[in-house]
Design a protein around this nucleic acid. Sequence first.
DNA 1: CCGGAACGCC
Length: 713
Amino acid sequence: MRKKSPSQSLEIFRRHLQLGFLYDIDEVTIAIALKACSGDQKPGCQIHGFSITSGFISYITVSNSLMNMYCKSGQFDRALCIFNNLSNPDIVSWNTILSGFPKNEDALQFALRMNLYGVVFDAVTYTIILAVCLDQRGFLFGLQLHSLIVKFGLDSDTFVGNALITLYSRWGHLVEARSVFDAMPNKDLVSWNAMISGYTQEGNYGLEAIWAFIDMVREGIRLDHVSFTSAVSACGHERNLQLGRQIHGLTIKTGYGTHLSVGNVLISTYSKCEAIEDAKLVFDGMDERNVVSWTTMISMNDADAVFLFGEMRIDGVDPNDVTFVGLLHAITVRHLAKEGQMIHGFCIKTGFVLESSVCNSLITMYAKFQSMQDSKKVFEELNYREIISWNALISGYAQNGLCQAALSTFLLASSESKPNQYTFGSVLSAIGSAEDISLKHGQRCHSHIIKLGLNTDPVVSGALLDMYAKRGSIYESQRVFSETPEKSQFAWTAIISAYARHGDYESVMNWFKKMEEEGVRPDSITFLSVLTASGRKGMVDIGLQLFDSMVKDYEIEPSPEHYSCMVDMLGRAGRLKEAEELMGRSPGGPGMSMLQSLLGACRIHGNVEMGERVADVLLGMEPMGSGSYVLMSNLYAEKGDWEKVAKIRKGMREKGVKKEVGFSWVDVGDIDGLHGFSSGDKSHPRYEEICRMAESLGSEMKYLREKNRAYSK
DNA sequence: CCGGAACGCC
């Protein structure tokens, strides 16, 4: 009899059942036919019935095949029922049931029971347990299994070796995975693929993945779509465009160029390497596109994301939660408020608002659109609040300047779940920029961070140091910086800007020099701090040199802030003509802060002519701003032109321009808030005590000053 | 002729 293929067997079987010719059916035909069902339960049930009536069920091969069919078609209970009726299950029966458990933990329990029962494990049993325990038991359990496998001499089995490579890779032990791989007597395609994908998934082994792939090609091993997806993905992680292109060529040569998953990962790799055109070419050339293909395209260019989403719908491909994360991100960056609301509506209708990842994207989106009410509403409708959702809300409040809300949300979040580095990043930035939050909150966060062991995180330590710096606590900033083990560009910039804010020119220059010596590249923010410090100290020539070096040596495009800083520097030094000239070169023309600095400089150096010119432009931009009026009136007053002073004061009154009241905050370490004062303010409940103390301090200062004067004479 | 291993999108 000629050997039949499984699908032929199934067809023959069907015909026999219909015609009632049962004489040439044996247990082998039944097994082959059941395999051909491949999870389709309808013919499977018919064969089950036939096996019972014909008595073939007593063959262990038939029972095992039936159990396997039921496991594959998601009817584990039926498989278990057959198993329980077996009088003499063999190792295949045990293994079939073991691999069929829908829950990994149940499978492990069953494996322990098998052991108690005295079942001798074979290589297949170990492969199943290894796969099951990947995410259930710790690494030590895997090690125990490995030693048992070696003890019973099953480590030469290719399947077992492949499972071990995967296990070690999953736990990040790539060196062990490699030694299993090297020791394997019969490596097959899957062994190579497991090794390459192990390297690919572990962040620091991208190059090893690529090398393993090259070795695989050199050894002449057949390549399949799994080899290509892993290798191309490694090129993406490594941002290795050149090799990515070469492997792309190889996929075309070997006939995998139009394979769906290879195409998807090619798009992603080209997009990571910023070769958007190549990504589009791959996408356009695909025979078949699924949700992954579309989602990758949508997530990669935010300019066309909304359009692509429409095309995806026309193509009849259903989006998933990842699609919406990418789409909402694009909408957020592009500030498409209308589209954002539409997609939100779409997600409500289709039930995607139940996905926490989609909700987190919505929270971030509304926060970026400055509608914190909507952001909070999405948050409140969540059925489970994970730390990522809390983070989105806290950072939304912080970015919108709602520092008190950010702080109170943080306090709620940390009572409900465990904060992570992003949580602290946001709340510290809120505490740093709030004038009315006690520094005590910042210090409490600091101790919380130490307790959680997050103080070594570069983002967290940078945020801490920035917070202390903004709140004027330079000693604590310096301490955080000194305790940072790996000082990133962010940390260096933070400590330099801390000293710049403190007006400590020498320290700024010192740390800047050290930063360059350490080989850390300064960025535009670093230069902003260095230039500010030079300006305050009046080191104009050094400032000009630094500005020059920023453009020429570091190729950093100066922003309006840099120009503003330079204008201020030149203006303070009285080099008003140069300042005005530089201001004209600023991209986007002279801005408010630049004009204000120059006007201030005109006042200091008594240049009425330029002052009037500058004030004119400034008042055109901001007619109700009191600052320009005050500066001009002071300038006239110094020149003794009282007529013009009176004219300005009158103009202010007529237009209703009010001078903003200046506030000072005093932090006495009170968690619930700070004490605010303004000039002439008598509203504080302990006003009289405060006045007495101020007077006493004043007279003490006066006494000390006179004493010093007496000594110096 | 029954049981077991590898990959991709945020």
